[in-house]
Design a protein around this nucleic acid. Structure first.
Lengths: 343, 343
DNA sequence: CCATGTTCTGCAAACGATTGCACGAACATT
DNA sequence: AATGTTCGTGCAATCGTTTGCAGAACATGG
């Protein structure tokens, strides 16, 4: 459209006032300072000329950028795109822009990226990369930069944090398996250093206890990562016991995929010989053989909630969202079945 | 770290020169203007104080933002994350930031988003949303904003465009099927209005001809979208013929997934009764039953190439990348097999 | 020795917004 | 009627850069 930018001065000239008056009219907070007649005239002129404020000038003056940095481990992990869409959706409506970066789970890279984002003067940071004990998080808080954690929590107090209710997710998984008659249920656990891993383990112990089921340490297989390879390794280890489990609650869908591979290798039929539950409900897992029973997480809603929390922080009012846990639900598909008659 | 920002003036004061001199030292293009001794002293002081230029001031003065807008249909489509990672990787190294937006395939929304990005003064735009006849693209070009197309081309001349070599991808798929003895091969086609759909159809016709195979119009099933539902519908239609095909080249993996659903519904075994080839090699399709034979596209490389093209455009030199096609390759898995003996 | 370049560096004006301050008019108060 | 308040508006500084211009210092050549 119009290639030459319209400035405050241009619209001021058109109305015959000073640019500062125009500025006041256009800012809702200061609009009351100017007389109604002039205000409407200015507003009309601004609209007519198609005035668009220059963000750089604004930012230079106010040192607010209307930009939020979002840091995730890896965009190609299907968990994150919905999260980001949720974030962008609500932030976009408030005229914020998000800039995105991937750490590939490398803390050093994360540090660099955070520094770069501060160089870009982001107004706030949304991190999906927090570890349970996270120095970077503490630094950000010390510097009073607006911060919201998503998906993973940290041990620091008094922080906005949007999580899945991991315990509830694990509980419905265990409920389901118990209802099918399973008693020897094992958990393939994510890394303890991540809150998701930690919380799911705790949730698992709790859910098992609630059903009066035995939960020996050998039935919680620790993994180094939420990966397919680790899931495969873990299931093979679990089955190499005197009385192996009949059902598995995997830490996430990738690990569940590893379980599929392992059960093929062990010549076990899923779900006849072993039931498997995943976590996250990634795309396409409904098309596996068998379709994966898994815990579905409202990722997009979590993203939206994180963005809301950020907006609350930035607006000054509503200073504490605190920790918020969204409830996941179980999607029953083909990978879980009755406990095998003998075992 | 340091909370108070260091400005040009601060480092100028430390060395005892004027801020403009510091500016000249720090800009490689103007560094030659200042004497070597002062230059080194200034550089040292800048490093010591940890000077970081204020991007807003720079942008305000130069009206360059060091920001590139990337517009895609939908981040949750697994094709796009790798593309974006490729883009971010190379753009990040040149200190550019990318901002991202999803159109959900809605042209109106796309127009809004492009306007918003120009409001943000992006230095360039990378579009993955082009239609073959695209007014928005023409507008951008008319306004001389740097533009690179990725994944989808448009009919406009003289434009930087990074594509998959769709014809080559289809050709290797057809080669593979022909080698397995298939002669009645059908194509499930994407929308003609998208270059990907169009080019794959053309490639299919060409490949069939190269093998001396018959390619009646009835064996090219037009779809309205690259979706699972359309793929399913299309395969059912294709099989409802006097002599139905024994192999399918789907327009993409989602359509191939639809074919899986359709063949179940039709009680056909894949690959015994029908062979299916996908396109894109999305994550997890290697875990389907059967694992999907598909054409693997170097998405990340395409993203990187698009970013390179953009940098070339922006730097002024290297003004024309033109169209660049990256070669995909076939990944043979379980969804393709010998032609059924009778049919 | 003076005119004439050459370097080099500083000055100051942009870029386009926000905002404290001052000023004048209008109005209310005594 | 004189004084004090309030209200609306303009002035000008400021944010941190870049960059055209001018002048100082020095070298060069006739």
């Amino acid at each position: 459209m119009s290639n030459e930018r319209i400035t405050l001065k241009d619209v001021a000239a058109k109305v015959g006032v000073h640019s500062s008056t125009v500025s006041r009219v256009l800012n809702p907070a200061t609009r009351g300072m100017v007389s109604p007649e002039i205000a409407t005239a200015v507003a009309a002129a601004a609209k007519e000329l198609g005035y668009r404020p220059n963000l750089f000038a604004y930012s230079l003056r106010t040192s607010r950028s209307f930009t939020i940095g979002v840091i995730i481990p890896d965009l190609t992990n299907p968990v994150f795109p919905p999260l980001i869409r949720g974030i962008e959706e609500v932030l976009g409506q408030s005229n914020y822009t998000v800039i995105l970066a991937n750490t590939d789970n490398d803390p050093a890279r994360e540090e660099t990226l955070i520094a770069a984002m501060r160089g870009r003067q982001v107004d706030g940071l949304i991190l999906a990369t927090a570890r349970r004990d996270d120095k970077l998080v503490r630094d950000i808080i010390d510097d009073k930069l607006a911060l919201v954690l998503i998906n993973r929590a940290t041990q620091v107090e008094n922080i906005d944090c949007i999580l899945t209710d991991d315990a509830a997710g694990i509980r419905v998984a265990v409920d389901h398996l118990a209802a099918l008659g399973h008693r020897r249920i094992a958990h393939i656990a994510g890394p303890e250093r991540l809150s998701t891993g930690h919380r799911r383990i705790a949730g698992f112990r709790h859910a098992m206890a609630a059903h009066g089921l035995d939960c020996p340490p050998a039935n919680i297989a620790a993994c180094d990562a939420f990966s397919e390879a680790e899931g495969q390794r873990a299931l093979i280890a679990l089955m190499d016991q005197p009385s192996p489990p009949t059902a598995i609650v995997a830490g996430n869908d990738m690990q569940a995929l590893g379980c599929y591979a392992a059960s093929e290798a062990l010549n076990l039929n899923c779900p006849a010989d072993i039931s498997i539950v995943g976590f996250n409900d990634m795309p396409i897992v409904d098309r596996l053989a068998p379709p994966l029973t898994t815990v579905s997480v409202p990722l997009r809603k979590m993203g939206a909630a994180a963005a809301q929390a950020m907006l609350g922080r930035l607006s000054g009012e509503n200073p504490k969202t605190g920790t918020m846990e969204l409830t996941p639900h179980l999607v029953v598909r083909g990978s879980t079945g009755q406990v095998p008659p003998t075992s």
